[in-house]
Design a protein around this nucleic acid. Structure first.
Lengths: 143, 143
DNA sequence: AAATGACTTTACGTTTACGTAAGCTTCATC
DNA sequence: GATGAAGCTTACGTAAACGTAAAGTCATTT
């Protein structure tokens, strides 16, 4: 029924997301990925693919694997649908949202600082240019 | 001349930013902070304070101490103002800007996912409510 | 059938970013 | 002058996130 029922080998996903196979096995070891097996060989589902993507995004955002795993687990539990867990999930989502807000502020600050830093650089370069010109004209009329 | 010429003790900054003194000493060890000494005791300047703030922001954004230190060092070099270094700095700033763009995308995606997750949770709760009601009315007229 | 390439497990090594004593100094306070 | 708070150094310990062999399986290619 699923439109994306494709499966993937470890190296396939490894190449696609530029992550080592070692890392992927480690993620499985930590319970973040749960590929099927055909004999010994890992068969990754599109669900695994999505999760891998989320893991890597999480990393870029400064989340630990444990934090990401917590989210995965919580989501899995939520799908089993008891009321308390749904409320727990909502709380967690709210916390995550707050975290994202903080990160947006951080990014905004960082951007401002980058802007001013760039401005200073450009000014400094301008001044250097002026000095060059002055030096040259002094050289041309050295008296 | 400086408006903010105040100095700080290690515990003072430690409390303000909720970071252990151990961490601060470690940051110094790694060359990220450079407090003066009065005897053995560290005396932190407002420059150190700013840097500490930047270190922590960097951490929240997933930067390693090494990355943050690179930026600090580059900036210090830049202040010594040779042309090649200024251009180097500009390149680095551009790269950082790109990184921030990626992070903004990541955050936007994460927000969308949180929104949909929340929506699903709320729907699931609604359904549970409905089930409860149905169960109750069935109980009331058990024939 | 030998080699090549993709995959596996097991296991020890490494880096980062601190935690956690242990033991010493210095200063203020009771 | 003892006691405690705040600071220091030295040094070993640790969790996280892999890296890096070592040694074996399995399928395909030559």
């Amino acid at each position: 029924m699923s439109l994306t029922k494709k499966t993937y080998s470890i190296s396939e996903l490894s190449r696609e997301f530029d992550v080592t196979t070692r890392s992927m096995r480690f993620y499985e070891d930590q319970g973040l990925l749960k590929p099927d097996r055909k004999g010994q060989t890992r068969i990754f589902s599109s669900k695994d693919r999505v999760r891998l993507k989320l893991i890597l995004r999480g990393k870029r955002m400064g989340f630990s694997l444990a934090e990401t795993k917590e989210l995965f687990d919580l989501w899995d539990e939520t799908l089993s649908g008891n009321e308390k867990q749904l409320h727990l999930m909502l709380e967690t989502l709210a916390r995550k949202r707050a975290q994202l807000e903080q990160q947006k502020k951080d990014i905004a600050m960082a951007e401002i600082e980058i802007d001013t830093a760039e401005a200073r650089c450009l000014e400094a370069l301008k001044e250097l240019e002026n000095k060059k010109k002055n030096a040259k004209s002094t050289e041309e009329s050295p008296g």
